[in-house]
Structures are given as C-alpha cells and as structure tokens.
C-alpha cells in the first residue's frame, strides 16, 4: 500500500480515479472498475486501512430503521396519515402507531369499544400540515416506510422553527460525541433537535438568539468539509453576540 492517509482530504468528483493500486478495496462511495477504484460522489476521499471511502457532500435522505425524523403530514386517508419525511417516498403513520396510552376501554374482557372505533377516534389527533418528530419502524424496497410517534421525545411539534439542511452534513452539526450541538446549545441557549432526515428543530429563548443559532448552522453546513470548525463556530457566535449585544 503506497498511498498514505493524506493530510487534508481531497475533494473528488464522480468518475475520478481514487487509486490504481489493487491492494485497496472500495468502501463507501467507491466502486471498482477493472483494477481502478473510482468515486461515485462529489465528496472527500478518505483512506481507512485497506478501504478507500468517499464521504459525499450532498445527497438525499435514505430512511433506516430507528432513525428519528421530522415530518409533515401531507395527506389523511381513513386509515393512515401520509407524512413527508424528506425521502423518496412518503412515510405512513397508522393510528395504532400514534396512540400513546393503551386505552382501557378495549382491554380484554370488558371491550366496550372495538379497536377499530378507537383507531377511528385516534385519526382525529393530527391534522393536515402538522409537524411531527417520528421514528422509522420499517423500511423496504417495495412498500413505503412506516413511522411511529410513540416513544420518548416523539410527537407533535407545537412551537419553534424548523430549517432544512444538507443530509450528509448532519454529523458535522452534531459533532464528535455531540461536541458541536453542545456548543450551540450552551452559547445560544436554544433547544435543538437534529433529525436524521435533514431537518432541524430550533426553539430559542428570543428570536435574536434563534436567528443566531440558524446562522451558525448555515455556517457549519457551508464549511462542513473544512478543519477546525468547532473553534471557528465558537468564535463566530461569541463575536456575533457581542456585535448584536445579546447575552
């Protein structure tokens, strides 16, 4: 293996030859063509042991089981809601996946109400255009992803601002072991929820702080492929706070 881990990760384009050394294996974002490895994204080339990865800089969200996402209700049928989760397909939310507490009325032995009626009742819970924090229950190639709102920190969003960011840059907004998100929370005193599908929920104590937080996130998004970002963001927020006279 002749190629060492390069200091600054190179930017590569689709079809660019990553290496012609046959000892390397294609990792994420790379494919083999003959004895060459080529990139399939605009991204950063990264050598990890035997593997060469390309970390994409742009991309669409692909749902995975267990992901927490922010979605918007775009359609209501008699049996389910259809939720726009920023993916190829809309997610399906069924009433039984939105009932927080198991209703005593339908317990065995004293069923006064059928489960169908309960579900019918539950369908009134969310309206068109409601924003939800939901979790993905199942995904496959054939059918649409199924989501649920039952669980900790899930449910309807009633306040705050939601912005959308590039999906591949989400890890950078969270930072290593949550360092960046901690920084944002500490300095702007905003509450944040970063969903895997590229939507970020922000609730600030004041609109000014909320705006500052959004600006900082936009800066992270733009400069996601550079080094020393955490320190720069810290400096940026402190500077802006002083400039605008925020506490």
């Amino acid at each position: 293996m002749t190629e060492a881990n390069t200091d600054i990760r190179q930017i590569v384009v689709p079809g660019e030859i990553l290496t012609e050394d046959s000892n390397f294996l294609p990792g994420r974002g790379a494919i083999r063509k003959g004895n060459k490895l080529i990139s399939i994204y605009i991204g950063l080339k990264e050598v990890r042991g035997k593997y060469i990865n390309v970390v994409p800089l742009r991309g669409k969200y692909r749902p995975e089981i267990g992901d927490k996402v922010i979605g918007k209700i775009v359609d209501i049928t008699s049996v389910k809601w259809r939720v726009d989760i920023n993916a190829c397909d809309t997610g399906a939310l069924k009433p039984k996946d939105s009932m927080d507490v198991y209703d005593k009325r339908s317990q065995r032995g004293r069923a006064k109400v059928s489960s169908r009626e309960l579900e019918f009742e539950a369908m009134k819970k969310f309206g068109l255009g409601d924003m939800l924090i939901a979790k993905i229950v199942s995904v496959d190639r054939v059918s649409e992803p199924v989501i649920t709102t039952v669980g900790e920190s899930l449910g309807k969003i009633t306040e705050g601002t939601i912005i959308s960011v590039d999906v591949p840059k989400i890890p950078r907004i969270i930072g290593k072991k949550g360092s960046m998100i901690k920084l944002l929370k500490d300095l702007t005193t905003c509450r944040l929820f970063i969903a895997k599908n590229g939507l970020v929920w922000i609730r600030g104590v004041s609109p000014e702080l909320e705006n500052l937080c959004i600006e900082a996130i936009r800066k992270i998004e733009r400069e996601a492929h550079t080094t020393g970002l955490t320190d720069r963001i810290q400096y940026y927020i402190q500077e802006k706070k002083q400039e605008r006279g925020l506490k």
């Binding site: 600054i8 950078r172 072991k177 949550g178």
Partner: peptide, 26 residues
C-alpha cells in the same frame, strides 16, 4: 486534520444523553 472531519462514524448519532436531556431542558 484527522481529528475533526466530516464522515466520522463517532458523530453519526446524536448522543442519547443529549436526546434524553431534551425533555428535561424543555
């Protein structure tokens, strides 16, 4: 340069304690 970069597997998930903290902070 290796320390703080896009695509680190460590930073793929939001840490659970922070997510739990969300409720409390709320």
């Amino acid at each position: 340069p290796d320390d703080d970069m896009l695509g680190d597997e460590d930073s793929m998930d939001m840490p659970l304690e922070l997510e739990k903290g969300l409720e409390r902070v709320k």
